[in-house]
Design a protein around this nucleic acid. Structure first.
Lengths: 151, 151
DNA sequence: TATTGTTATACTCTATAACTATA
DNA sequence: TATAGTTATAGAGTATAACAATA
């Protein structure tokens, strides 16, 4: 058996499993968000907006077009979970700020996300190893098709 | 420092990172699918339908309501990538079968999914460890909110 | 009576393009 | 002229409920 074949086989398996993990974690997030009366995108927006940030940056972090953010934030704002603050240094910008209620919901979301998360079934040692591997994977720069670039 | 605190801290970090990984892999899948003129759900349907399977089972695997499958399969069928076959043992069922062209597209998809996948940046040893950990995570049964159960 | 898949409905997400207001 | 955000639009995903065909 050649090393290339092993790597090839291993890669295919890992691709399949990361796909499966992604599907499962996505279902977990969607379900958890639903229990808090949040759509998946609303939950992700809250999750990501720890510090005030302009709308375009939220679009980047959520990997979607800026035009979508308007509606998503509209709905969060109408529920009092988020607000648009004006930026005095550049009055085109609207800085998104999570309200107190929004922060409370976000904390509920994070707690609920821990319950039933399959990753946390791992014992301490394995969890630590998993942590290290994730750090390395996430540290790697996006290569060809990482983000929604044109190319 | 107590063990519980370490575990707690580690858990939070791992949750945050799996969330980030999920977002990134999802963007990667969506972008890759788009390059093959597939919507994300169409890509997932093809990915999952290696063996013929009834529509309800596809709904389960895709974690969505059965009513959505009709439209998704309609569009795949109109492109000649998938077909509805009648099941002679139970004529209510329609078994989904990927056509030759559908299989070709699926192979393209899988190959494209490997390119630029951040997980494959890992070296052989780390990849193997990651493989083992994923196996353990995926083997764990869904607990509270794993699937879209009522509860 | 229960199950498989469809249809109808209403809402959300999605990208594209054209627009406003700032810079 | 370029950028941040909005609006309009059309297509796709989403769950719910009511329905047909079959079991």
């Amino acid at each position: 058996m050649e090393t290339g074949d092993t790597r090839e086989h291993l890669s295919k398996e890992v691709i399949r499993m990361t796909f499966e993990l992604t599907v499962r974690l996505r279902a977990h997030l969607d379900h958890t968000a639903g229990r808090l009366d949040l759509t998946p995108m609303q939950a992700r927006a809250l999750f990501v907006t720890a510090e005030p940030l302009p709308m375009g940056e939220l679009a980047d972090q959520l990997h979607c077009d800026a035009s979508n953010i308007t509606g998503i934030v509209d709905r969060l704002e109408s529920r009092g979970l988020m607000e648009r603050a004006t930026d005095n240094t550049d009055r085109r910008r609207r800085n998104l700020v999570v309200t107190d209620e929004g922060r409370a919901v976000t904390e509920q979301l994070k707690a609920a996300l821990r319950d039933g998360n399959p990753v946390l079934e791992l014992d301490d040692g394995a969890l630590e190893t998993f942590h290290d591997l994730l750090s390395r994977v996430l540290a790697a720069r996006h290569t060809s098709a990482g983000s929604c670039g044109s190319a």
